[in-house]
Computed example of a mutant assay.
Amino acid sequence: MDVPAMLEAASLLVPEKVATENDITVNDVWEYLTHDEWEVALDLLEELGDVQPLSPGFWETLATAAEQMRLDRSAAWCNWRCYEARNGTIRANLTLRPAAEARRKTAIPGAGVLRPMWDIGNRSPAGGPALDIARLWVEFVPFLEPGGQASVRLAPLDPSQWQHLEPGQVITMHEDRSVAGTAVVLESVTAHR
């Protein structure tokens, strides 16, 4: 399937009544598709996907279209959203420890490549903290510097271990035994299957 056909197929999965804060609807997507403005259509479909939860198939189709257009960050984002559609969404406000106080001296890449460990309150059989792994996506910026703060999304290796999280809960990020950062959960939504 070619890019325009994929974008058309994805647009058919968006309910007609869905609109962004700027009143963008699927009709706007169709207008850009008729003028071969595929990248703009892709961006608008991503925005519409933020208005209400859409199916993994929607996000898979957008990811494939983005890959064919060689839009690597968009493809990674759409694949991330596909994961969330299947497994749920966890968002948090993360503050990294300053470089002078932590092992990390370089920025965290924002596009979901880092897989740190997290203390989310689970316990090991011996009673100590059990650390759980989750990929990290930094929202709205390409990376997060040591000492910085940003909204992040987490993609757990085992989503079932994370279902107890609630907004306001504090969790800690680890890249080794020491605490690399502290996060406050903003949202924890289980996927609707």
Rank of each mutant, 00 (worst) to 15 (best):
A155H: 05
L94I: 06
E37W: 13
P125A: 12
G128T: 02
C82Y: 01
F58C: 00
L154W: 15
E145S: 04
R104I: 15
T95D: 00
A92V: 09
E175Y: 04
R91H: 00
L71K: 06
V189G: 04
L7C: 07
A19L: 08
A41S: 09
T61N: 09
P56T: 01
E101V: 08
N79K: 12
D72L: 00
A75S: 11
P98T: 15
R153S: 15
R91A: 05
P142R: 07
A66E: 04
L7F: 05
A191I: 12
T20I: 02
V138K: 02
D132N: 10
A65R: 01
D176T: 04
E187I: 11
F140P: 02
A92W: 03
E46M: 15
L154N: 11
A65N: 03
L44S: 05
E39Q: 15
R115W: 14
E31F: 08
T182P: 07
C82P: 01
D158A: 07
A99C: 13
F143I: 06
I24V: 15
S55G: 10
L71H: 03
V170E: 07
A41E: 02
E60T: 07
L186C: 04
I24N: 13
P56D: 01
L7E: 04
N93K: 08
S11R: 08
P129Q: 06
L7M: 09
L48T: 12
V18N: 14
N27Y: 12
S74L: 08
G57C: 09
A75D: 05
T89A: 14
V185T: 03
R193A: 14
Y32H: 14
I171D: 08
P116R: 00
V14A: 00
A100H: 14
D158N: 08
R115C: 13
R123Y: 13
V113E: 11
A183I: 01
G57W: 03
I171S: 09
G148M: 03
L96R: 02
G112V: 07
A76G: 14
P156H: 01
D176N: 07
V141L: 09
T89D: 10
V14E: 00
Q149I: 07
P167M: 00
E47G: 01
S124A: 07
A19T: 09
A102R: 14
